[in-house]
Amino acid sequence: MIFVNKKILVIILIAIANLHSQTLKDQFSYANELFNEGKYFDAITEFKRLQFFDSENQFSFQSNILIGKSYKAGAKFDDAIKYFTLAEISSRNDEEYFNSNILKARTNILRRTNHQAERILNELLVDTKFKSKENEIKYWLGWNLIFLDEWKKASKIFLENNLDTTLSNLCISVDDKMYSVNFAKYSSYVIPGFGQFYTGEYVSGLLSLSWNVFAGYLTVNSFIEDRVFDGIITANFLSMRFYSGNTQNAEKFALQKNLEISNKALNYLQFQFKGEKP
């Protein structure tokens, strides 16, 4: 009789423990449902509630990942990274460790802390445990280069092992459209206004050329007339001002145009690209 009772007691205790575990599972499902419905604020609350009552940390990794994803979806990147790091700490195997780090890198890409993303991805890349994940790591390294405005390098990465030819072609086309900032600047040193013409700013180029010719004429004229001090001052305050202004202007136009090109490409990637994005 005593033996039977002990068995019943154990069964009851297991049943109660399972009931507790079931409650946590239900809570996880509920929070997950909110997450899937895009109700990120509520999802975070429910995942945090789950973590609070999950004394044995059964759901620690999943809940941290999903809290991180919820924050990421709300563009709260700092909080997202905090929770992905907590997920990394609570990871139970290599797969979970890898996934949390990839999410951390992706969030860093979006947060524009690209060197941090690069460091995380490179650490994963050299880790022999993740040899089979090389393509995935490189894919995000490519995206990181896109956000660093290194379109040519990004296209090369996407081309490796035919990682993503669509992205590679897009990167090549963006890189082709980009203006050379150095060419715009230094060509303007040789012919004032040339850099502006190169970037399609014809009026500005013409004005720059005219001011430089005029200031140059005044400078030369002063020296011809033996008014050396006039010449020095004119050269310093007029010629140099227009000359250096012209090169700075050309550089600024090239940077501005490049920004427009890359923003247009990023806009396309954000709204029309069908593949996986950071």
Partner: peptide
């Protein structure tokens, strides 16, 4: 005697677990 202990344990433990379970 053992029946009593068993009964007592169930009475004590059930509310404790029950309380933990209802997170709401």
């Amino acid at each position: 005697m053992s029946n009593k202990i068993f009964f007592l344990l169930v009475v004590i433990l059930f509310p404790i677990y029950g309380q933990q379970i209802d997170i709401h």
